[in-house]
């Protein structure tokens, strides 16, 4: 059992849950994720790691309550426990193994969309702690739905906000802001890292291509075990089948078949909808 030591609502339906998981806190690196099971009957749900603290032995998860499993996870409060937290899974971000002097010469821009902003944070933090300059674009539907703004402002060299309704920062999508920064404001970047909904990552990739910038995305495929055993998370990368959990989750964005990835994400949508309706009927939440 993994005890919850902190719980906050960051925006409507988006929660921060910090759990005691000393082994994971000790091993986690930017780019990795965990698999969480809320209780004995719960699904194994992959969640990105939003932060980790080796000294405290805790791992921070940011979860949007959208289905039965994520609602089960976010319904738990301080003092409650999650049945299982396994990880850190997946390969760390490539930059973790690059020489720092090389990294310091490059200027990356991270694009976080919605709840995908959370896993951007440990990456930017890791780079900032090592003196690497990083710009960050955070996108949300509206000002109320922005998460990790203060935290990100502390570690990013420049933080740019985009909201769909213009209630804060740039009025429009992250892709438009990225293009604006490069073509209008003369920002020079050497690469883009995008984490967010699959559709956002697809369009950020198209924008990066247009701007002739290398691009990395972190895929959030369906998973069961998360250790390579089931193959539910397979994606097509440069025409070859790869497993998101062991070969990813980060891939060269240019190589990703996003349309297939989005279609595969919807594999269990009918069952999920049924489960959601069922859960509402019994007034669990």
């Amino acid at each position: 059992m993994f005890e919850i030591v902190e719980k906050r609502e960051l925006a409507a339906g988006i929660y921060l849950t910090r759990v005691k998981a000393p082994r994971i806190a000790h091993s986690a690196q930017p780019g990795q994720f965990v698999i969480v099971r809320a209780d004995e009957k719960g699904e194994r749900t992959p969640l990105t790691i939003a932060d980790y603290d080796d000294a405290e032995g805790t791992v921070t998860l940011v979860t949007q309550a959208i289905g039965v499993s994520t609602r089960k996870i976010t319904a738990k409060g301080v003092g409650d426990s999650l049945a299982d937290v396994a990880g850190p899974l997946g390969r760390p971000s490539d930059f973790v193994n690059e020489p720092l002097e090389e990294l310091r010469k490059r200027h990356l821009v991270f694009v976080g969309g919605g709840v995908g902003t959370a896993p951007v944070y440990p990456q930017v933090k890791w780079l900032a702690e090592r003196g690497v300059e990083v710009d960050v674009i955070v996108g949300a539907k509206s000002k109320d739905m922005l998460i990790y703004k203060e935290e990100m402002a502390k570690v990013a060299t420049n933080l740019y906000i985009a909201t769909d309704d213009g209630s804060e920062g740039f009025h429009g999508l992250v892709t438009a802001l990225l293009e604006n920064l490069v073509t209008e404001q003369g920002k020079h970047y050497d690469g883009v890292v995008a984490i967010g909904p699959m559709i956002m990552m697809k369009f950020v990739t198209l924008t990066a291509k247009k701007l002739e910038l290398p691009c990395t995305v972190s895929l959030n495929a369906l998973m069961v075990d998360g250790t390579g055993m089931c193959g539910a998370c397979r994606v097509t990368i440069a025409g070859k089948t790869k497993f998101t959990c062991v070969d990813g989750p980060e891939f060269n964005a240019y190589d990703v078949d996003f349309d297939e990835a989005m279609r595969r994400q919807a594999m269990y949508r009918a069952q999920e909808q049924h489960a959601n309706e069922h859960a509402h009927k019994c007034n669990c939440f």
């Binding site: 082994r23 994971i24 091993s27 990795q32 937290v85 396994a86 899974l89 998360g226 250790t227």
Partner: peptide, 10 residues
Amino acid sequence: ETDVVVGRTI
């Protein structure tokens, strides 16, 4: 000890 992915967790 469950939930320990050797190679990743340790």
